[in-house]
Amino acid sequence: MPDALQHLNDLKDIKKMMERSSRFISLSGLSGVSAGICALIGAWFANETLNADYYSPANGRMYDEAGVSRFADGSALLFNRLFLIAAATFIAAFVLAFVFTYIRSKRAGLAIWGSTARRLMFNVSIPMLAGGIFIIHLVQSGAVGMIAPACLIFYGLALVNASKYSLEEIRYLGYGELLLGVISCWFVEYGLHFWAAGFGVLHIIYGALMWWRYERAD
């Protein structure tokens, strides 16, 4: 029956079209790898800063004479060394991730800024913004040990949410971040290590796997 093949192809076309039209699939694995490398570099600088006793209670950068956190005032945060490292890391990771995804979508002939990208960004932003506000509040109230767990947990939730609007596999990266985040709540002194494992190592592993799976052939 010659029709059979055509019907099968029809079904495949339908499936492909539903996928392509509703998910942002040009996210490149290399974006994950580059973001992971940025995170590791950022974590290294942060570690240096912490090891240099930059925030030791003695030098008064963390608490004033009365023992009140200096970051209770939001403006003090902006010029803080760790905050700058975090911001630089985020910007570098974001720009590099964008570049690799841009290259990939150009190659595949897909628009980078369509309704799928918009939907993905919107749905990632919800947990990220809530998390960002929560973390600023953690810093202001002096609960600095909870920053790393909070970053990992909110980012993990954002990824699980994102998986509905992009590659399905992002869900597993999200689970990984969530798991690390939850565990790190009990190991506050290793916060930066967990942070580096989640944002660095997991990103690199995930990105490399995705690249291997979808882009190797290109």
Binding site: I14, K15, M17, S21, G109, G114, S115
Partner: peptide, 27 residues
């Protein structure tokens, strides 16, 4: 037609799709 199939598939999973997006999807 493959094109009509494509249009219907895209519209099934999206609340609305504009002309240019359809053009790009189905090429």
């Amino acid at each position: 037609s493959r094109i009509r199939l494509g249009i219907m598939s895209a519209l099934m999973v999206n609340a609305e799709v504009n002309f240019n997006e359809l053009k790009e999807l189905i090429q």
